[in-house]
Every structure is written in C-alpha cells, then in structure tokens.
C-alpha cells in the first residue's frame, strides 16, 4: 500500500456549474493519478470530427491554398456522432480511403464576391452532407445584429475574387492534431482547506488585519464589518501563492493561518470548444478510459522473456 493510505475506490461527484460549453464539478475520494488520467483523456483522446482533406477548385483570394486548408481544419464541427463513427484508417467500407458515410462527412464551399463591399467568407458558408455535423454556432441567440451571427471568418474577398472547394471531415483525436481536441481547457486543482488561528488573529489591530487580507492577490478573505473578524469568503479563489503565509511571517505571526491542499478532493473545470457538450466530454472521457483498460485486460499477447531476451530474462526474474 502507498504510505499505508487506502483510498476509497468509489469517488463522489458533485456538479457546481453546467452549461453547454462549460462545466465545473468536484471529484472526491480519489487520487491525483485518476484525476489526471481523466484530464489527459479529455484533452487528447476524446474523438471529434474535423476537416482533414481539402480539394480546392478555385482560389483567387489573397490567402494561399494551404493557408485556407489549415484554417478550415481548425473550425470546430459538432461531433455528437464522433464516438459512433469509424476512424478512416479502420474503415472497411472504403478500404481506409476515408471517403464514405461511415467515416467521413463532406463539405462544400462556393463563394464569389460580386460587389465593391468586402465579403467575409465564414463557417456559415460551409455546407455539410450530414446535418448532424456542421460548424459550431457561437452566435448569441438573443442578439439580433448580424455582426454576432456571422460565424468564424475563413477569408475575406474583394470584387471578382472567388473561393470554391470541397472538404472531407474525418474522425480523429487531439493526440494526432490539436484540431481534433474537443477541449479548450481542462484543469483541476486540489481543494484548499483554510484554518485561521482566531486567538492569534485577535492580537492584530484592524489596520494589520486589513493589510493581511489585502496581501492575498485573490479575494479569499474578508473582514466582517460588524464583528471585525477575518473570515474565509472563497477558499477556492486561493491559488497556492503563499502570499498570506509570507505576510503573516513578516508580521511576526507565523501560524496565523493554516492552508492544506486536500490530496483526495479535486475541483475540475472543463471548457469545451463547442464540438461536444462539456458534460458529454466528461462521459466520453470515462468511456475511453474504460476501453483502454478493457483492451489491456483482454489482451493475450505474452512473450516468454527467457526465450526472447536470453540473459535479460534473468534480470526480468530479478535474478
């Protein structure tokens, strides 16, 4: 056992905040290795759909072909279907060609500027062969002005300039290229436990208390206007910067506050690119972690070290 500590095998979850593209939740009674595995899978191993192949027919814009192809690849596409899609390399329907309904989605873009006004070519101009896979819509539904509803700009065209292309979107993971990462940021922090030594705090003047509270770069402490006592208002705002501890020592009051990072409690924040909902991103990550474990558990690929490695076999046995 590690240091004689036995963690409960069954973690607890509590959701603090949940939106389509943002989630904040607590994961308790588990270890950093599990929390970190979850974080890493969310960033790099949850699959999404992104444009991977671009065939440009006409491009008379100021941006060259590969520049536009790169920009198209980085446009997030709604990827609820990604988990059930096939990787194009594993697709037997198209022999790994990556151009069939099971492993790819086709997009078309045809735009020509006919006026003296600069024309913005945006993700809204991409037409998909599959209605479930389309560019993510970042527009505010309540906003009426067209500025907020125009999508992601791909290129700007002047009079006479034209862009005509066909793009193939495929399933992939963030490990292969960042365009396939469904997560904008995934972070976790240890939950801080803050204990103020009330007896020691009483020895400070109001001015000293105020000075001590202000030494924290984030708003963790506050002085109660009625009782004049220092209280913790937002423990999670503490960034483990140790400023309050240094200040207490500088004031000649070490032990004024005790801050402990709970090693078995984590606060996760998950921000999605919009390709997958934040809540679904967490669930998909768990599913992928399970698949990885299952693959190892069921593998029967064994090599006898004595036969294959000669003298190294003895070392493997600890001899």
């Amino acid at each position: 056992m590690e240091g004689g500590v036995s963690y409960a095998r069954m973690p607890r979850v509590k959701i603090r905040e949940l939106k389509d593209d943002y989630a904040k939740f607590e994961l308790r009674d588990t270890d950093a290795s599990i929390a970190n595995a979850l974080r890493r899978v969310m960033i790099a191993e949850v699959p999404t759909v992104a444009i991977d192949l671009v065939e440009i027919e006409v491009n008379s814009s100021v941006l060259n072909d590969e520049f536009i192809a790169h920009r198209l690849g980085l446009i997030p596409l709604t990827s609820e279907r990604a988990m059930s899609m096939r990787f194009s390399r594993d697709c037997d329907a198209c022999d790994g060609d990556g151009q069939c309904e099971f492993c790819s989605v086709e997009f078309h873009l045809r735009v020509k500027c006919m006026t003296d006004q600069t024309l913005d070519v945006t993700s809204k101009d991409l037409y998909s062969s599959d209605p479930t896979v389309s560019p993510v819509d970042f527009s505010d539904p309540s906003a009426t002005d067209s500025d907020n509803n125009r999508g992601i700009i791909i290129v700007k065209l002047r009079r006479g300039q034209e862009l005509k292309l066909r793009a193939i979107a495929r399933k992939g993971i963030g490990k292969d290229h960042a365009k396939w990462s469904p997560a904008a940021t995934v972070t976790f922090m240890y939950e801080p436990e803050i204990h103020i030594n009330e007896d020691l705090m009483e020895t400070l003047t109001l001015e000293e208390k105020r000075e001590w509270v202000d030494s924290s770069p984030t708003r963790v402490f506050e002085i109660d206007p009625v009782t004049q006592q220092v209280m913790v208002v937002d423990a999670e705002a503490y960034t483990y910067d140790d400023e309050v501890l240094k200040k207490a020592e500088a004031m000649g009051k070490p032990g004024l506050v005790e801050i402990i990072a709970r090693q078995d409690s984590f606060i996760f924040t998950v921000e999605s690119t919009g390709a997958v909902k934040a809540s679904q991103l967490v669930l998909n990550a768990i599913e992928i972690l399970k698949q990885k474990l299952d693959a190892v558990r069921l593998s029967e690929d064994t090599v006898e070290a004595d036969d294959q490695f000669g003298e190294l076999g003895a070392h493997m046995r600890g001899g």
Binding site: R9, M10, P11, V13, F25, L27, L38, L289, L293, R297
Partner: peptide, 17 residues
C-alpha cells in the same frame, strides 16, 4: 478495478447532472 471505478464515476456523474 479501475474499470469498475470508471463505471461508478460515470453513473455518479449522471446522477449529479
């Protein structure tokens, strides 16, 4: 063991949602 834990986290997360 780890798979069971993942399954538990999944169902707990579903309930929390």
């Amino acid at each position: 063991d780890l798979m069971l834990m993942c399954q538990h986290v999944r169902s707990t997360f579903d309930n929390a949602m």
